[in-house]
């Protein structure tokens, strides 16, 4: 009887948690193609519903911005989304094929005179709900990171 090599016969959880890279079409609603799985993985890795809400909101805002403002809904362009989830870290990188923008150019939506302007809140929500957000130099890519608070004993 021939012995089969054991390698690969048993599924091993990937080191560093779950990862997924996807190319999204520049269509409204395309975030759904990765979001359901991201939310499921956050739950499987023990993230709280409150944390999941914040990560969901930040990721949704980043992807919508990339599709609508970055790629301007151009069907020839895609948005690259790279996700990584472990019990300690959720990291979502969103890169569009647009020319980029200067995130410092967004006016502060909480200024008294801008409170009733109906747009321009996405980036502020990303910053508030995540531990760190960072745009690349070109301004067409953003990294969102949330680190899990150490659990109290």
């Amino acid at each position: 009887m021939a012995h089969e090599a054991a390698a690969g016969s048993r599924p091993v959880p990937p080191v560093g948690g779950w990862r997924r890279d996807v190319e999204l079409p520049s269509e409204r609603g395309a975030s759904r193609l990765v979001m359901d799985e991201l939310l499921e993985q956050l739950g499987l890795h023990g993230w709280s519903p409150t944390d999941i809400f914040g990560i969901h909101l930040a990721a949704e805002e980043a992807i919508v911005n990339a599709i609508v403002h970055g790629n301007k809904l151009d069907p020839a362009k895609t948005v690259h989304v790279s996700c990584q989830v472990s019990p300690e870290l959720a990291r979502i990188e969103v890169t569009d094929a647009g020319p980029g923008f200067d995130p410092a150019s967004i006016p502060d939506c909480t200024l008294e005179e801008r409170l009733e302007v109906p747009s321009g809140r996405g980036v502020m929500l990303m910053r508030s709900f995540m531990t760190r957000i960072e745009y690349n130099a070109k301004g067409n890519g953003v990294v969102l990171e949330k680190r899990r608070e150490p659990q109290a004993d």
Binding site: L57, P118, S119
Partner: peptide
């Protein structure tokens, strides 16, 4: 359970 910033815009308007 969830709303995005685009929905906030409608509430403001």
């Amino acid at each position: 359970e969830f709303l995005s910033s685009a929905a906030l815009g409608k509430l403001i308007t």
